[in-house]
Design a protein around this nucleic acid. Structure first.
Lengths: 360, 360
DNA sequence: GCATCGAATGTAATCGATTACATTTTTATC
DNA sequence: GATAAAAATGTAATCGATTACATTCGATGC
């Protein structure tokens, strides 16, 4: 007797069983299910009854093999535990599953082996389309996703290729708006807490920061650009760096390239007695849920995460079904500045004693 | 001309192309790829060269059809945007993708339609196994997952069926430990901020709370059990409720059924001038990332999220490959109490003036 | 030198659906 | 009522792999 390598399953009904029970051909069963209007009423009821009685469900592998489709989309995510991507995924899931597509989540997790495995999967025709939330086109040692004959759409992070379909926010413009908010409040000494230099989003947000200062006639002071890498930890470090500055030279406001760093920084300066927003206004970027829970609540740029995912998914669907991208290759979605409690006008004058009177 | 419903793809190489190029039969190609040791050296190199030249990758649908496997596992998640599940998913992904399985994420999102769609998908044989992170066995109007002839494993939430393979933490015991920590610090008036009554995890945590009090000889005071539903918002409400109490009757400590509520509560009482931990000690449950960022950092029960996922995935793999579950049907993983800054002994005496001296 | 055996490879059935084409049945038209 | 056209259904090819079984070939033993 052969070695059992799998679970014994009772045999599932196949289309031939249904056909036999209904007294029709397999073609008729298939047609009844796919286009009920082409069979006459009487046949249809007989077939549907047989389907119910047998509990028949079409075998997807067989169908896929025949129609050369899989009805699944692979989504490449840099880090599934990052709540930002989780919300983008929600939007993707809404759109895709409503259109009948399944979702394979490729959690890259910084592992080239995983990435390669998924590239092979895609090249093997296991997915009808790919959504890239990572900032690069996936690769395996011997294959590049672009020659996989599968539609690709990127979201959230820029992919620096000509005419690559993608949907993002306008990072430069939005960062500019964030800094302009601080300028409008009257701040003139505005620091920037950066992301990792190599990151394209970071570069764009920095550019927005620069533009806003330039427009306001404020010189960019390199010593006010603090290094960070998007993590809470580097926010804490930047906070410490800020505290070592001579109070007179200390900026009255700061724009952080993301919320996590902003929150780390606020926590650190608070512990040292520097108050946000009285002594320092802070604007974040992303709009993570926690920005609304922390103390004080964080003024930040809220990215339309769900919408980014949904729009990218919709774009991919048109690409998969028509083969043509929409009119705009690069769709930019609006992000909005959410005003909360971490920003306020600077105190008049240099000293602590000049606190502006306020209620509460 | 027929309407084009899909993208034109250049034809991918199939096994017959490889066979032709290598001058062998398709069987030999298949064997070379599956069990290289059965073909002689010379054939093997010829075939492998042909595979490389053609860029051949086996068509997965065809293979699945033939071997009656899909090599994908479906994971049912109540809410993909919840960071708790995101980390569990990481553990699942690590284990499953290392074993060569793909992952379909079913984001239930409280939608019965979605749930039904996924149940149908599974019943159609689209997955080799299912991991349930939701607290129930999935259903569609006419199908129950248990008659889908597919191995199921649950994780995180209890499924109240006999002998259902699942891996969770011991909620009763762990909640008891959390409350015992407060007791050990000297608290005798300990409140409980609950989850939704119908939730089984909530029931277990409440039971742990009760046990710990009983062991300490403290009577359970129903007025100290505050209603909540696991959201930040109800934490805020519970905080307000606490503030309305007569200071003399106010508990000196509180155990929250999850971190989000604990954080909402702390934020609220802080705003009203009540200090954590000086005036109120707080213990949370779950160990979300933010528990370590907030002010003060939160003493909490840290669930081994990755491990929960990885263990459940491993269990499912044995189930899928051998058809037999491991020895223990219900695996309980240890969760540990993480001591941080939100707990401390109560002040001696009733008044504010009796503050215990402390360093820092 | 011939039978036997085993290794290597080939031939063709098979998985379960879809669908082009063929056939039968119904309806419409004169 | 005959005939054409349209509608409904059936037959069988097809998708691309795996693998049981058949075949070939060379080595070994006597």
């Amino acid at each position: 007797m052969a070695k059992r390598t799998g679970v014994t399953r009772q045999k599932a009904a196949k289309i031939a069983d249904v056909a036999r029970l209904a007294g029709v051909s397999v073609a008729t069963v298939s047609r009844t299910l796919a286009r009920p209007e082409v069979v006459i009423e009487e046949t249809r009821t007989r077939v549907l009854a047989a389907v119910r009685d047998t509990g028949y469900m079409p075998n997807i592998s067989a169908r896929n093999l025949r129609v050369r489709k899989t009805m699944v989309v692979l989504v490449a995510v840099p880090d599934i535990a990052n709540p930002f991507f989780a919300e983008v995924l929600q939007g993707i899931d809404d759109t895709l599953s409503a259109a009948g597509y399944g979702l394979i989540i490729a959690n890259l997790a910084g592992s080239p082996e995983k990435e390669a495995r998924y590239v092979d999967l895609i090249c093997a025709g296991q997915a009808d389309g790919v959504l890239l939330l990572c900032g690069h086109v996936m690769r395996s040692p011997d294959r590049d996703l672009r020659d996989a004959r599968v539609p690709l759409v990127a979201a959230c992070e820029y992919i620096p290729y000509e005419n690559f379909p993608q949907v993002t926010i306008d990072n430069v413009e939005t960062a500019r708006e964030a800094v302009r908010h601080l300028v409008d409040l009257g701040h003139t000494s505005i620091a920037y807490l950066s992301g990792p230099n190599s990151n394209i989003l970071e570069q764009q947000r920095l550019e927005g920061y620069r533009q806003a200062l330039r427009e306001a006639g404020i010189a960019v002071d390199a010593s006010l650009i603090l290094p960070g890498d998007f993590t809470f930890r580097t926010g804490v470090e930047a906070g410490r760096a800020l505290l070592t500055l001579d109070p007179a030279a200390r900026p009255t406001a700061l724009f952080a390239a993301n919320d996590e760093m902003a929150i780390g920084l606020i926590k650190t300066v608070h512990a040292a007695g520097l108050h946000v927003p009285d002594d320092l206004s802070v604007v974040g970027f992303d709009g993570i849920a926690y920005a609304d829970y922390c103390e004080p609540t964080l003024t930040t740029i809220v990215q339309p995460r769900r919408d980014l995912g949904a729009t990218a998914a919709a774009e991919l669907i048109t690409l998969m079904t028509t083969g043509k991208a929409g009119l705009r290759k690069h769709i930019k979605l609006p992000a909005k500045l959410m005003l909360r409690d971490s920003t306020r006008p600077p105190r008049k004058g240099p000293g602590r004693s000049f606190r502006i009177a306020r209620s509460g």
